[in-house]
Amino acid sequence: MLKIDNLHARVEDKEILRGLNLEVKPGEVHAIMGPNGSGKSTLSNVLAGRDGYEITAGSVRYLDKDLLEMAPEERAREGVFLAFQYPVEIPGVNNVYLLKAGLNAMRAHRGEEELDAADFLMLVREKMKLMQMDESFLKRGVNEGFSGGEKKRNEILQMLVLEPKLCILDETDSGLDIDALKVVSQGVNASRAADRAIVMITHYQRLLNYVEPDFVHVLYQGRIIKSGDKSLALELEERGYEWVVQEAAA
């Protein structure tokens, strides 16, 4: 589904990604861990097509297409979803309006008709229930005045409604209280499917107790320096990153 090959990317003359390799197949769940500033958000932004990154080498194939050639909205319509580390507020734009516009854009891209208002509302209500979100959030501006945790829930709500193929979650678990973490995990688990892949960026092994990953990777200075199964996360939690770095340097 996703194949990243020797990816190099720079921001304002600073090389952040330095030869990153990663392959993700449908149905898999990958966790990416790594110290602050190692390039995790940069990777997700590059995959989603954010402006301001210069790709200096390497390639990214997504569903047999050159992902880097596609416009950001095209990537989204082809099923790439990014749950942002810091979701932005858009005052005055209804949350429900965004959901509808997004969903209809995807449907139009697939040659499907717009969902009628009643069906759409039913779908959204069902997903909100799963996320234990109050309906009042629909009428509020996108993320406007939402608490940190509410913003994260809202990201997962959007993911559930839009039903993407490749979900990239950038620290969706950060800033969540214990109950909210369970709710968000439920949302992510509900999204697991044979034709969908999930890439979770996280600092905490705790999330992985709820959403069990098939692979865990360590990103360090713009490269994946170690990969393993979920036991790697436990080991990292116990021992930190130092030993991995030393092992990689050896």
């Binding site: 097509g49 909205e73 997004g102 891209h109």
Partner: peptide, 11 residues
Amino acid sequence: QLFYLMQRGIS
């Protein structure tokens, strides 16, 4: 803001 909306499939 623009990128956020475009990431949701909006032109």
